[in-house]
Design a protein around this nucleic acid. Structure first.
Length: 561
RNA sequence: GCGCCUGUAGCGCAGCCUGGAUAGCGCGGCAGCCUUCUAUCGCAGGAAGCAAGCUGUAGGUCGGGGGUUCGAAUCCCCUCAGGCGCGCCA
């Protein structure tokens, strides 16, 4: 715990004030810590104002807390800003990239994402999924956990058969001419178009699934071919996001094991067969209704394989916690899944967690993959980079093509990542490409630009920042910046504990904003060399923290914009 | 019908879990700083606003009602509106 807060706690010990009452005042001019005295009023039969004044008069400041003031019904504590500055700056200076990291937690955490279906390419929704998964993985690692990233390929089921059927009927054995996952997706769209004319296709797709499960040679051959196309080029998309998995699962490998688990439950009486022969579980006591786990014809259902996969993941990794990053549309599915596993008596069932996230819309409206009106992930990445490129062309027509393309890539991705991660995951939002790439406002490029500005100052300074500076030269604005830097480790911990990257984005914007205000008010490089040295250290540390924070969002910084 | 999520300035969001001091931030307004072949370390006046920065300013029944509390955006109940789900799809 923070040495300053500890001091406040100790000061309050003899006054019957619970440490839980200590809070941070809304405004920095009110001090660094505060205690509201309302609750003491009854006990002491005095007004809170009087109590605050009385206690303030008795409390003795020390080396850490240099001032205690009564402010109306509040007790306000002011820390020794010099001591804080020394500690914060030397922490960042010595820890560099590790500033904000914690070794303590040491849990084994599994995180599953983005788990695509192999009948269509990745789209905007997957992008949110991937960005959340990556960011949360990094945050959890920062807390000293071992994070295992796994991906489940949903490569079997009726939906897969639909694109297969369309290809079989209308594909004329054509080979892909486009990115191969897109090629597969086009047949899924085609299926749904043809379905409007020929409703019997629905039944045919279902029949195809049965044939697939029975190992029909022709069906399996089409399946293999199309899956290879889909999966092969998913890799390309993952690469653009720098995404690698520690373990990949395939639904086609595991679904039969799920059926075995269901059969076992049937024997134990946890599940039952209805009059048609389909297997159900009754979850009405938990207000989750009845759930079918196996069809009368013996074919498996999505949840069936998920039952086994949960167990398999535990068998393989002995996780302390297993996180599923999946859209909120499936909230119900996961409630059911976790409840069934609990009823099956797996002790680890309580360590499963569904990280649910909302929809992403575009200004044009909702995406429908059946109609092919999705925003494709690859197109989106490309579009963002093109937007960044245009911006750079305007500003630096002289810049070498190669350098410009590299900057455009980083800026485009930063725009995308930051815009998507800045929203609370539970919420739906509209993605505005143009707005996200703006260099002003709450964007990734704004923060990259802030870092680039600092780089520019440091470059002009010409030397490395030195640790030993005259702290007494810092003014209130500088101490305010330092206070911000001081809170970074807590922010990381909070974002990691709550699995909420948006807490971090908010912090980084605050810090960036605070720095830019400072930048305009005070000149870093100047005549007074002692002051210059101190300011150089401060801005270098601001840069370090911005970079550390952006890392957890997967955003690269640039030397120059 | 039932369940879950959401409702905070013109628009987009944070704050709600862990109740406290004037409800923050961004975009857009307005007024400036400023910029105008480099303000990413720099700065005369005028004009313009092409601007990736900053300041000030306007703008709020925290969806509505009730309750708990010394104190409610925050907790509880009711209610209205929107989204998602309640599949032998995934």
């Amino acid at each position: 715990m923070d040495v300053f807060r500890q001091n406040v706690q100790e000061m309050l010990k003899g006054h019957g004030i619970d440490a839980a009452l200590i809070e941070v005042p809304p405004n920095p001019t009110m001090g660094d810590f505060a205690v509201p005295c309302f609750t003491l009023a009854k006990k002491h039969k005095k007004s809170p104002q009087q109590i605050a004044a009385d206690i303030a008069a008795i409390l003795k400041p020390n080396a850490y807390i240099i001032r205690v003031e009564a402010n109306g019904p509040y007790l306000n504590f002011f820390v020794n800003t010099t001591k804080r500055a020394v500690r914060v700056l030397s922490d960042i200076f010595s820890q560099k990239k590790s500033y904000g990291l914690l070794k303590a937690k040491g849990k084994k955490i599994l995180i599953e994402f983005p788990s695509p279906n192999t009948n269509k390419p990745l789209h905007l929704g997957h992008v949110r999924n991937i960005l959340l998964g990556q960011s949360i993985s990094r945050l959890l690692e920062a807390m000293g956990n071992t994070v295992t990233k796994v991906n489940l390929n949903n490569d079997r089921g009726v939906h897969i058969c639909k694109s297969m059927l369309a290809y079989k009927l209308f594909g004329n054995n054509q080979k892909p001419t486009t990115k191969t996952d897109h090629f597969v997706g086009d047949y899924y769209v085609l299926f749904n178009q043809k379905l409007a004319e020929k409703p019997e296709l629905e039944e045919e797709a279902q029949k195809m699934l049965t044939q697939w499960e029975q190992g029909d040679a022709e069906v399996v051959a089409i399946w293999k071919q199309m899956n290879q196309w889909a999966l092969g080029d998913f890799e390309q998309t993952y690469k653009k996001f720098g995404l690698k998995f520690d373990r990949e699962y395939f639904e086609s490998d595991i679904y039969t094991k799920g059926k075995e688990m269901v059969m076992a439950c049937l024997e134990k009486g946890i599940m039952y067969k209805d009059e048609t022969g389909a297997v159900f579980i009754d979850l009405t006591p938990w207000n989750l209704g009845k759930k079918c786990l196996m069809r009368a014809d013996g074919t498996s259902i999505y949840i069936t394989q998920d039952l086994y996969l949960a167990k398999l993941k535990h068998d393989e990794f002995r996780f302390d916690r297993s996180i599923y990053v999946v859209a909120s549309e499936q909230d119900h599915h996961f409630k059911v899944l976790f409840k069934v596993l609990e009823l099956m008596d797996y002790p680890w069932a309580s360590n499963l967690y569904h990280l649910s996230y909302g929809m992403v819309y575009l200004p044009e409206g909702k995406m429908k993959s059946r109609e092919g009106t999705v925003v494709d992930a690859d197109d989106l990445v490309e579009q963002m980079q093109a937007l960044a490129q245009t911006e750079l062309d305007k500003r630096y027509p002289e810049l070498a093509q190669k350098e410009k393309a590299e900057r455009a890539r980083k800026i485009g991705m930063a725009a995308l990542r930051f815009f998507i991660l800045k929203y609370d995951a539970t919420k739906d939002f509209v993605y505005h490409p143009e707005e996200s790439i703006s260099f002003e406002g709450e964007t990734g490029p704004y923060l990259q630009y802030t870092v680039a500005r600092i780089n520019s100052i440091l470059k002009k300074y010409g030397k490395a920042a030195e640790e030993m500076v005259d702290i007494s030269r810092f003014n209130a604005d500088e101490h305010f910046l330092i206070k911000r830097l001081d809170s970074f480790p807590q922010i990381i911990e909070e974002a990691a504990d709550q699995l909420k990257p948006h807490i971090l984005t908010r912090y980084l914007l605050d810090l960036g904003l605070a720095f830019n205000e400072y930048y305009h008010k005070h000149q870093v490089l100047q005549e007074d060399k002692e002051l210059e040295k101190a300011r150089v250290l401060l801005v270098a540390m601001v840069k370090q923290v911005l970079e550390n924070g952006l890392y957890f969002l997967g955003i690269d910084v640039l030397k120059e914009m």
